[in-house]
């Protein structure tokens, strides 16, 4: 759950987005800019957190009392080496924060920190990651929470989609690319697994609200609506003339976690006015954006 230290929204004097070159960090920087909230983006060019002196490099870009959104990550962390690299990046950031303490730290975490069998998931569900990616985020949350004396918030998005997503994991982004190439969208089995997908713009809007309210605690960035991959594939296919969906054999056994649901009461309480973009609308919006880009 989030606790707002500012009941009325007040824009921070300055927000530094660490990792603004990425898909999520870029969306957050654009959202802050659109809201006329003073913001600076840092990419690996300004502060390479894996390079020697990465912490000092980051500290040079910080001013005491800055609000910081930390997004930078090698994601997904698929193996031990990537897990350790991510932790080293967080270690460097902690060194930077020790040298120049922010006024508010927001960490973009992940719903992967929760146990697979936590259903429905809430912010108070136990952190029991079963993947190196989930463990990375859980460990980083703890590192940051321990390292800073300022208010700390963890925003935990579920599966994110959006027009600029460079990843091609199983879901809306891959489906769109397949359809755009004129291929049939391939789903595993009947695509019956139901998952929650959140539009990257919603993650960015939530990050902005957390900054405006100087919130601390945790919030899941999830819509509360779980949709089957089959239905998502159909929604994407409908955007393309002649779009098709084809069932393909699963690469392995049917997943243990067939469905995952979230209880979004925490968000309804923290930000009563906030509305998630429904997945059908989000997919249509992404389609318009990508068609505009091409």
């Amino acid at each position: 759950m989030l606790e707002h230290l500012q009941i009325q929204p007040i824009a921070p004097t300055r927000t530094v987005v660490v990792g603004s070159g990425g898909f999520v960090g870029g969306a957050i920087l654009r959202e802050l800019t659109a809201r006329a909230m003073p913001a600076v983006g840092l990419t690996r060019q300004e502060a390479d957190l894996l390079a020697p002196g990465g912490g000092e490099a980051l500290a040079r870009h910080l001013k005491p009392g800055d609000s910081v959104v930390f997004v930078s990550a090698i994601a997904p962390a698929k193996n031990v080496a990537q897990l350790m690299d991510n932790l080293r990046m967080a270690e460097a950031a902690c060194q930077a924060f020790a040298a120049v303490m922010p006024g508010h730290l927001v960490y973009i975490s992940s719903d992967a920190i929760y146990a697979d069998d936590a259903n429905p998931v809430t912010e108070s569900s136990s952190a029991a990651p079963t993947t190196t990616h989930g463990m990375m985020h859980a460990a980083r949350e703890l590192m940051f929470k321990t390292a800073v004396t300022c208010p700390f918030a963890a925003l935990r998005p579920t599966l994110i989609y959006g027009a600029r997503d460079p990843h091609s994991g199983y879901g809306p982004n891959r489906f769109r690319r397949q359809a755009a190439k004129g291929e049939a969208i391939s789903i595993f089995g009947e695509g019956e697994e139901r998952r929650d997908h959140v539009l990257v713009d919603d993650v960015a809007r939530l990050a902005a609200l957390i900054l405006l309210h100087k919130s601390r605690g945790a919030l899941n960035a999830v819509t509360g609506v779980s949709t089957s991959f089959r239905d998502i594939a159909d929604m994407v296919a409908a955007q393309f003339p002649g779009g098709k969906v084809a069932s393909t054999p699963r690469p392995g056994p049917r997943p243990h976690l067939l469905h995952r649901f979230f209880d979004i009461t925490g968000c309804l309480k923290a930000f009563p006015d906030f509305r998630y973009v429904r997945i059908a609308d989000g997919i249509a919006d992404v389609h318009k954006q990508t068609m505009g880009q091409s």
């Binding site: 209880d263 979004i264 009461t265 309804l268 009563p272």
Partner: peptide, 15 residues
């Protein structure tokens, strides 16, 4: 969880 049923229901059905 159940105490929040009206809040969730109001949001889903109207708000």
């Amino acid at each position: 969880h159940r105490k929040d049923w009206p809040l969730r229901t109001l949001h889903q059905a109207l708000l």
